[in-house]
């Protein structure tokens, strides 16, 4: 479970990025986080990744209290998360196979396990036939699928996708979202940060709306409309 209790984040220059955020995301949930640029979505993500420390309040993810976690434990905490970025952040000089395998190597998985698991994950995202290709040889949608495969490599409990459909063509957007749904159906918590209203409306999942550092709406179904009362 992910739990924000009165979480605020104030940067040293005085900018209040998040203020008294209270949220609870249960294990296995699928959640959209929406909001305009500068609303505080990125800060929320950075807090979840423990790239930033909360200024006040308590943030818990599973057994980890991110307000108290010592630095040396952060990499181990992050292994519970699978990150997907809008710019994919793949390793350009590594093949599809190596990109996924690398995520496992990073945490010290033995080669025998890597050899067994990578093909399985690539089959899940439908890229087994392209395992020898380099990222530059793939379309945006395919690259994002590699990023998803890499995020899944270490069997994380939570998948966090930051604008996963932003840089890919419309046809592929649904494919990526369907893949995320499929991952969610296997019991993993999926958090998708997005701007795309049609996607949010289409899937009818929980939508958390952030504006000016506050959670202004939290509902199942479509996107929060600006003309609705807060």
């Amino acid at each position: 479970m992910i739990e924000f209790n009165d979480v605020s984040k104030i940067f040293p220059n005085g900018t209040v990025a998040l203020e008294n955020v209270n949220l609870k995301i249960e294990d296995g949930e699928f959640v959209f986080i929406v909001g305009a640029s500068g609303a505080g979505k990125s800060t929320l993500m950075r807090l979840l990744l423990r790239e930033e420390k909360v200024s006040s309040g308590v943030l818990r993810v599973g057994d980890y209290d991110l307000t108290k976690i010592p630095n040396y434990k952060i990499p181990y905490y992050r292994r519970q998360l699978g990150m997907v970025f809008q710019d994919f952040r793949l390793f350009d000089k590594k093949t599809v196979y190596e990109n996924v395998a690398f995520a496992m190597r990073v945490i010290g998985e033995p080669t025998s396990v890597i050899k067994r698991r990578v093909p399985t994950i690539l089959s899940i995202v439908g890229l087994m036939d392209k395992y020898k290709n380099f990222p530059s040889e793939l379309s945006g949608g395919e690259q994002q699928r590699v990023a998803l495969a890499r995020a899944l490599a270490n069997n994380p409990r939570i998948i966090i996708a930051d604008e996963p459909t932003a840089n890919i063509d419309p046809k592929m957007k649904m494919e990526i979202m369907n893949l995320l749904m499929k991952i969610n159906s296997k019991g993993k918590t999926v958090i998708v940060v997005t701007h795309e209203q049609n996607i949010v409306d289409y899937f009818q999942k929980r939508v958390i709306t952030i504006r000016d550092g506050h959670v202004v709406d939290d509902r199942i179904g479509g996107m929060f409309e600006e003309n609705e009362t807060v």
């Binding site: 998360l81 990150m83 952040r89 390793f91 990073v106 945490i107 010290g108």
Partner: peptide, 16 residues
């Protein structure tokens, strides 16, 4: 640096 930042998100330790 891009690779290192991606490694960080994957859960790579400083040692690695």
């Amino acid at each position: 640096s891009k690779e290192i930042s991606a490694m960080r998100y994957i859960g790579a330790t400083n040692f690695f």
